[in-house]
C-alpha cells in the first residue's frame, strides 16, 4: 500500500514538534529553520497550518533538475534528492509550484521531504494527529466518514 502524509490543520496547535522531529531526523539537530515541514501561523484568523511536499506524481522539481539529482523512491513514492548529484543550482526550488523544495545554505544542496524513507518523523511526533501517514488512495476517508455520519437516512426513509 502506498501511503502519503495527510494534514488536518484544524488539529494543529502550532507546537513545532514536527519541525524539530524533521530537522533531527535529517540534520541531527533540533532546528526548525532546517525543517522540511513548516507550520504557518495565521494570527488574525487563529489558525495553524503545517505544510510540506505532496510528492507530486509528475513532479515539477524532478522534471526541472538538470542533473537528475531528484529521483523517485519506488517504495514510498517520494521524490528524493541525491546529494552526491545535486549541484545546488536551485532550479527545482523555482519549478516547485508549492515552494516545498528549499535551498540549504549550510550544505549547498536543496532539501525536501522524503517521507523519512517511509516512516515520517513529523507524523510520529505530532501530538494531536494533525499530521498522519495514511493510505494514499484513501486520504479522504475520515472526511467521508464525518459527512456520512451527518446523513439523515432515517428521515429520508420516512
Amino acid at each position: 500500500m502506498q501511503k502519503s502524509l495527510h494534514i488536518d490543520p484544524g488539529k494543529c496547535t502550532g507546537c513545532l514538534q514536527c519541525e524539530m522531529a524533521c530537522s533531527y531526523e535529517n540534520e541531527g539537530l533540533f532546528n526548525p529553520s532546517k525543517s522540511r515541514i513548516k507550520v504557518f501561523t495565521f494570527h488574525e484568523e487563529g489558525r495553524f497550518v503545517p505544510y510540506t511536499c505532496t510528492q507530486c506524481d509528475d513532479a515539477w522539481c524532478m522534471q526541472a533538475c538538470p542533473v537528475d539529482a531528484i529521483v523517485l523512491n519506488a517504495v514510498t513514492g517520494s521524490k528524493d534528492i541525491v546529494n552526491d548529484r545535486c549541484v545546488g543550482c536551485k532550479v527545482c526550488t523555482i519549478a516547485c509550484p508549492f515552494g516545498t523544495v528549499n535551498y540549504n545554505s549550510t550544505s549547498g544542496k536543496v532539501i525536501k521531504c522524503d517521507l523519512c524513507g517511509g516512516n515520517p518523523q513529523c507524523a510520529e511526533a505530532c501530538p494531536t494527529g494533525a499530521i498522519t501517514y495514511i493510505d494514499a488512495d484513501a486520504t479522504g476517508l475520515d472526511r467521508m466518514r464525518q459527512w456520512a455520519g451527518k446523513t439523515d437516512t432515517q428521515r429520508a426513509a420516512a
Binding site: 496547535t13 502550532g14 507546537c15 513545532l16 514538534q17 524539530m20 484568523e45 487563529g46 489558525r47 495553524f48 501530538p127 494531536t128
Partner: peptide
C-alpha cells in the same frame, strides 16, 4: 474561543486564541 495553541514544543497546548 477559536482554538487552543501550543508554545514551542508543547504537547499540552493550553493557550487560548480568542475573539
Amino acid at each position: 474561543l477559536t482554538t487552543n495553541a501550543g508554545c514551542f514544543g508543547c504537547t499540552i497546548a493550553c493557550g487560548r486564541i480568542s475573539t
